[in-house]
């Protein structure tokens, strides 16, 4: 980008008035709904609450000290683990799908892409409730297994860690498929042929050519799955019951639940934001280093 700008000096200038005008709606939106709330969170995180759960503005580090408590570190660790497992499963499932999509010709490619998107047409909550109907003790899956005498007693499927991971994978899989598809589509099929020609079997050509060349798509997919999965609370709430609280549930509990400790919830949220910002910065620096 910078090279292009430098190459043609006439364009190397700030946007003019019309440019700012066009940017204005986005800028207002970002300030009102991203910057301002984030600032409020930061301010809250250094405050205290009174007995009624109201925020009292002081300056204290108590909330951050509490966040380092082993109880919360365990929840945090669990959240990271669940998000990591979810991301890994999504990546493994997404690659064959994205690859097939990228290699399919015109009319069918659009139809298959539509199948990936169709779940978005239904509310996320309704889809999660649908999973509950399938997984619960007297649900569809248990019913089928009992009917076919595969099992003697209903299996405990819902409200397990497995159910939470299933729900997360189901919710975020398209966010992994689409960016990988975007990368795979640009891959010249002749490169795969060249790899085969030079002695690669199917796995080797994946490891040596496909994976490195679709890494930008994979990286984008990882960001788009890992980050929201780590903060997700609805799925762990609905499909994990109260048994597997994630960090999202803890934060939610501070704001609208029984705990009613907005400053503490804000501190947890700020820690999260800082962590993601750090990860993103490291990732960005690495990719830029590779290009240069």
């Amino acid at each position: 980008m910078t090279d292009l700008v430098q190459a043609s000096p006439g364009t190397a200038r700030l946007p003019r008035f019309t440019g700012w005008l066009l940017l204005a709606p986005l800028a207002v939106w970002l300030i009102a709904f991203v910057v301002a709330p984030a600032l409020i969170l930061v301010v809250y995180s250094f405050s205290e609450r009174d007995e009624l759960g109201r925020v009292v503005f002081t300056f204290t580090l108590e909330n951050y000290r509490r966040a380092a408590d082993p109880v919360y570190l365990a929840v945090f660790g669990r959240s990271v683990a669940y998000a990591a497992i979810t991301t890994a499963i999504c990546a493994v499932l997404a690659y064959p799908v994205a690859w097939t999509l990228a290699r399919t010709r015109a009319p069918w490619r659009g139809r298959l892409l539509l199948l990936v998107m169709i779940p978005f047409w239904t509310s996320f909550l309704i889809r999660t409730y649908a999973w509950i109907t399938i997984l619960k003790s007297e649900g569809l899956l248990n019913g089928l297994l009992l009917y076919t005498h595969t099992i003697a007693a209903p299996l405990e499927l819902l409200y397990t860690p497995g159910a939470v991971v299933l729900g997360l994978v189901y919710a975020y899989l398209p966010f992994m498929i689409l960016p990988i598809y975007g990368s795979a589509e640009k891959l010249d099929p002749a490169l795969i042929e060249a790899a085969h020609d030079l002695g690669c079997g199917p796995w080797q050509s994946f490891a040596r050519v496909v994976l490195p060349l679709t890494r930008p798509g994979l990286a984008a997919g990882v960001m788009m799955v890992f980050v929201p999965a780590i903060g997700m609370f609805a799925i762990s709430d609905l499909m994990g019951g109260a048994r597997v609280p994630l960090i999202g549930n803890v934060i939610q509990d501070q704001f609208v639940g029984q705990a009613r400790d907005k400053p503490f919830g804000a501190a947890l949220a700020v820690i999260f934001m800082a962590l993601f910002a750090l990860l993103y910065w490291l990732w960005q620096r690495r990719t830029e280093g590779r290009v240069a």
Partner: peptide, 28 residues
């Protein structure tokens, strides 16, 4: 399959691996 044949091809588009250096392309 192609990877078990003792033939190699020079492709029309060259099909050089963009993520590899000249040395690594040749050593592939």
């Amino acid at each position: 399959p192609p990877h078990r044949r003792d033939v190699n091809q020079v492709f029309q588009s060259y099909a050089l691996f963009p993520h590899l250096s000249v040395r690594d392309n040749i050593a592939f």
